[in-house]
């Protein structure tokens, strides 16, 4: 129940013994297997072997100091093309994709690669036909590139924690800035909720989060900044804390900020079957501009008023109230109940 479970009471703990032996060095340099790729590309293979020969790792401890080792004996692992994981995390902050074909990735998330990989911007060249099947979000096209070829591709994003997610005939909506890469078997679409992207189909994608991702089951209310995404939830909606916001005082508080706000009057509420993905902090990744959706009535965020002059209730004009700036009277009216 209590954290941490095996905590000795303070003061009783003996001073940590000094002169502890340095962790044993048992980390052999990774065996050099056959270079990648196994077939063809003689030139690349030769170059690779030469590099490895030139980079002969000095034996450990040659310069008096042992190589830095983490506690527990697991030192910094030296990876080569064969020891890099296949479609898995190298560490919490880097992800290795075993590329054979094509992969979509957001610009600037590739940190290194082995092999023959071409990166081409979306919307140019011959891959447009493939795009028609997978990339149904033209507003985001300028943020994405297609990696094509064979090799190992390393992805990372500002030391955020990366996770890969497997979808099987499912759907998952994720904050657009948090998505790094996805397999072309998935379809990328723009969510109705602005700033989010929906992935549909079967395949794997990689997303970042500030701190490890925590999965929760609805019903739950989530701070907007802590939300990474959600899977299968049919009803993401806004929740306003009514008991605090209602009435004249609440309205004035909301408008002026006087009297303080808890900062938690507004949440996203999720109901229904599914999972909600939380990041453990409220620091967001820089929001990428996702452009404007097409101006069309009924599309949120498109800047077109909902049903102008229709039967959605009488539209109250915007009035400049001195001292309060441009106040939407319709909003105020609803708040005060007239």
């Amino acid at each position: 129940m209590s954290y941490p479970p095996q905590q000795p009471p303070y003061g009783q703990q003996p001073y940590p013994p000094q002169g502890q032996p340095y962790p044993p060095q048992g980390q052999p340099y990774p065996p050099q297997g056959q270079p990648y790729p196994p077939q063809g590309q003689q030139q690349y293979q030769q170059a690779y072997q030469q590099t490895q020969a030139a980079m002969q790792m000095p034996p450990q401890g040659q310069f008096g100091a042992p190589l830095p080792q983490a506690a527990g004996g697991a030192g910094p692992t030296v990876h080569d093309v064969n020891s890099l994981p296949v479609n898995d995390n190298v560490n919490p902050y880097a992800f290795s994709v075993d590329l054979n074909g094509s992969y979509y990735l957001q610009k600037g998330k590739m940190i290194a690669y082995y092999g023959e990989i071409r990166f081409s911007g979306i919307g140019r060249g011959v891959i447009d036909q493939m795009l028609e099947r997978n990339f149904n979000s033209p507003l985001h096209a300028s943020d994405w590139v297609v990696a094509e070829g064979r090799g190992k591709l390393l992805l990372a994003d500002r030391a955020f924690d990366l996770n890969s997610y497997d979808l099987e005939n499912g759907n998952l909506t994720v904050r657009s800035g948090n998505l790094l890469a996805f397999e072309p078997t998935l379809q990328l679409k723009q969510s109705i909720i602005p700033g989010f992207l929906t992935l549909i189909g079967t395949g794997k994608f990689v997303a970042a989060s500030n701190g490890p991702v925590h999965f929760v089951e609805p019903p739950i209310r989530v701070d907007p900044q802590a939300l990474v995404g959600w899977a299968d939830c049919p009803a993401p909606c806004h929740h306003y804390d009514h008991s605090y916001m209602h009435g004249l005082i609440g309205g004035l508080r909301h408008l002026t900020g006087l009297g303080g706000a808890s900062g938690e009057e507004h949440q996203f509420e999720f109901i229904g079957a599914g999972q909600v993905l939380l990041q453990s902090t409220e620091t967001l990744m820089a929001e990428r501009s996702v452009g404007q959706v097409h101006a069309e009535a009924g599309v949120p965020g498109s800047g077109v008023p909902h049903q102008p002059g229709g039967h959605g209730g009488q539209q109250l004009p915007n009035v400049n109230v001195p001292g309060l700036g441009n106040v939407n009277l319709g909003d105020l009216g609803r708040r005060f109940g007239f």
């Binding site: 739950i220 989530v222 701070d223 804390d241 303080g260 706000a261 808890s262 900062g263 939380l278």
Partner: peptide
């Protein structure tokens, strides 16, 4: 203030 990430149940947050 503002440090809540998510909650379940009926919980209120009042500025102090």
């Amino acid at each position: 203030r503002g440090a809540m990430l998510a909650y379940t149940g009926e919980v209120t947050f009042k500025p102090n």
